[in-house]
């Protein structure tokens, strides 16, 4: 590639620079201590990380402590420090409660199924009835992960709409009057997300399965344990770290649920503009209520951090217990 080319053209100056470096290295002996190189390697990312991860969070926290207030009916609105008042009103807001309940139901339903069925799929593929079939199934299961959530919602939107759906056609031909668009959004949205992410979860599990030492369950097999028992009692306990990892990923996905419901909203009346907490935060920002939006964003980040940190703690403890 280009790398070797530039390497050879810059060989002379690099060798010159190497000489000074060599004396420095000789003085310190250990090449693992080199603050200047570390700085060059670490700084560019760190600056961007501070700018686009840490600052926005700090800025949201700061914004959430202010509110627009008018001192009189004809006066312009000014930003006033209100302390934690925005949090108090967000926590008491019924719209926020509704969005949290939606996300909670989603987490216990489709999101949990994504992990459980992803695990089942991985175990079935790993059992390898036929190498070629297993390889194809692996590619098939994973392929929706490359489909943008917006496009996934567009495709399933058509498949939910009776006029354009082969599924509804098929159901009607056997006398089942199907109208998925009238179903609970938990499941119309959930199906799209399961379709997109289940394969990714299965892939994490497959990697974990591939890393297991086969001799462990070989002896169980010789002792007459069924494949199901081997899966339940040997494979799954050994896969525990990657199962928790996948739960954490799904949890983060659940709490920030935005794209699928937003895209499906153009078709379904069942989904309100503040259906999920992220949608609510977006709607507040779109209505120029920035401090409310910042409050919701901060709450979302705090809840996510607490829950996923607690879950990750669990993983670290579990295998050692």
């Amino acid at each position: 590639m280009n790398l070797s080319e530039t390497g050879s053209t810059t060989a002379a100056p690099a060798a010159g620079a190497g000489k000074t470096r060599k004396t420095a290295a000789a003085r310190r002996i250990d090449p693992r201590h080199d603050p200047r190189t570390v700085a060059v390697l670490v700084l560019p990312f760190s600056v961007l990380y501070v700018a686009f991860y840490i600052l926005p969070i700090a800025y949201a926290v700061w914004q959430s402590l202010f509110a627009l207030e008018r001192s009189g009916p004809m006066r312009p609105a000014v930003s006033v420090f209100v302390g934690l008042k925005n949090y108090a009103s967000a926590i008491l807001d019924p719209a926020f409660h509704r969005s949290l309940l939606n996300v909670l139901a989603y987490g216990l339903g489709p999101s949990a199924l994504t992990v459980i069925l992803g695990l089942v799929i991985a175990l079935v593929i790993d059992a390898r009835p036929n190498k070629k079939v297993a390889k194809l199934a692996r590619a098939a299961v994973f392929s929706p992960f490359a489909v943008p959530a917006v496009v996934g919602a567009i495709i399933w939107g058509f498949l939910y709409t009776p006029d354009t759906s082969p599924l509804v056609d098929a159901a009607r031909s056997i006398g089942w009057d199907l109208n998925p668009l009238a179903w609970s959004p938990i499941w119309t949205i959930g199906n799209i997300a399961m379709w997109t992410y289940m394969g990714f979860n299965a892939l994490i599990f497959l990697s974990a399965l591939a890393a297991l030492d086969p001799s462990i369950f070989e002896s169980a097999r010789v002792d007459g344990a069924s494949p199901l028992r081997i899966a339940l009692h040997i494979k799954i306990p050994l896969m525990w770290p990657s199962i928790v990892l996948s739960i954490v990923f799904n949890l983060i996905g659940t709490l920030q649920l935005f794209t699928e419901p937003t895209a499906l909203r153009t078709l379904s009346n069942e989904i309100s503009s503040g259906w999920s907490p992220s949608m609510l935060a977006y709607a507040e920002a779109a209505a120029n209520r920035y401090s409310v939006s910042a409050t919701l964003s901060t709450l979302l980040a705090i809840v996510t951090a607490i829950v996923s940190f607690a879950l990750l703690r669990l993983t670290v403890r579990k295998p050692r217990a």
Partner: peptide, 17 residues
């Protein structure tokens, strides 16, 4: 820790910034 920060919680503050 950044892996655990939901992009949705970042997008709106980024917009404000």
């Amino acid at each position: 820790a950044g892996v655990l920060v939901p992009p949705a919680a970042l997008a709106l503050p980024l917009f404000l910034m």
